[in-house]
């Protein structure tokens, strides 16, 4: 008798498990934003559940009829679980939604400012998305175009891998903005990189006397490729004389740094900008 009960229990468990995990017939793959239907999974009224990456949908359905899935219910790529429950029995199925056609681009360009004549200094990373901001993982060809300040554009096509492609670029020897454009189909994005002067090169100062004070000013400060160093860049003047040491940090204005200093006796003057040093002057004071 006990054996009979045990076998019955085993059978009922197997049956229940089989019914519980009954497979719902769902399409294996769906494109994001495309409506479709799931075949009816029984009879009578039941509850339909759809669990997706951004969805938790529940509605009453007639299990005998097809269940309509609206386009807006499958806009996000990923794994979806569809479940129908009628009475105590539930059926479930899984399907994957993949991205629609490429429609948007994410273009990340670094840095936004770059010193001139710097190899591989600019990087551009392109992410390809569909209309619903899903990353398009199927390889796509992206056209990258660089338009320098002077000269003609240069274009190149790159294939994405896992929805991403990237490129490294040299900065031009001339300062000014460079445009970087990524395009796929109708979608395009443009970024601008400011190419700025590099460190000061051949920093030179000269001195003159005005109303008993020594006036020191630099020549127009340029980098090694001849670009003007931007205004506001600090130039440090240091004077050492009988009174001790005097330092003044002066910003470049109109390309020149200028300072007035009193001098007593023999004075030694140096100039620097950041880690770049310039010429030195020896002057006699007391004029």
């Amino acid at each position: 008798m006990r054996a009979l009960i045990s076998v019955s229990l085993l059978l009922s468990f197997v049956l229940t498990t089989a019914l519980w995990s009954a497979e719902l017939k769902v399409p294996p793959q769906v494109t994001a934003g495309n409506a479709f239907s799931i075949s009816g999974a029984g009879s009578g009224q039941g509850t339909f559940y759809l669990i997706g990456p951004a969805e938790s949908i529940k509605r009453q359905v007639d299990l005998a009829n097809d269940i309509q899935i609206q386009s807006e219910e499958v806009e996000h790529v990923g794994r979806y679980t569809a479940i129908t429950c009628g009475g105590d029995q539930c059926s479930s199925g899984h399907f994957y939604v993949h991205a629609a056609a490429p429609d948007r681009l994410g273009l990340i360009v670094h840095p936004s400012r770059v010193p001139v004549s710097n190899p591989n200094a600019i990087s551009a990373v392109v992410f390809v998305f569909d209309d619903f901001h899903n990353l398009v993982l199927v390889p796509q060809s992206v056209k990258l175009t660089v338009t320098p300040t002077a000269g003609s554009s240069i274009s190149e096509s790159r294939n994405t891998q896992n929805g991403v492609t990237w490129v490294r670029l040299n900065s031009a020897p001339k300062g000014g903005p460079a445009k970087i454009e990524a395009a796929i189909g109708k979608a395009s994005e443009i970024r601008v990189v400011q190419q700025v002067a590099s460190d000061a090169c051949n920093l030179q100062m000269k001195s003159s006397w005005m109303s008993g004070k020594l006036v020191i000013e630099t020549n127009p400060v340029r980098d090694c490729t001849g670009n003007f160093v931007p205004d506001g860049t600090i130039v440090s003047f240091t004077k050492t004389d009988a009174d001790g040491k005097t330092t003044v940090d002066v910003p470049l204005k109109k390309g020149i740094a200028k300072v007035e200093m009193p001098v007593s006796g023999q004075a030694h003057i140096t100039v620097a900008s950041g880690v770049v040093t310039g010429n030195e002057l020896n002057v006699s004071g007391g004029r």
Partner: peptide, 25 residues
Amino acid sequence: SADPVIEVGQQHIETDALNKKVLRG
């Protein structure tokens, strides 16, 4: 702002009245 510009003049190290070393200017 790039202004004001402040000159640091007459820098020298000396011994003060409390016999301590001080950078003055």
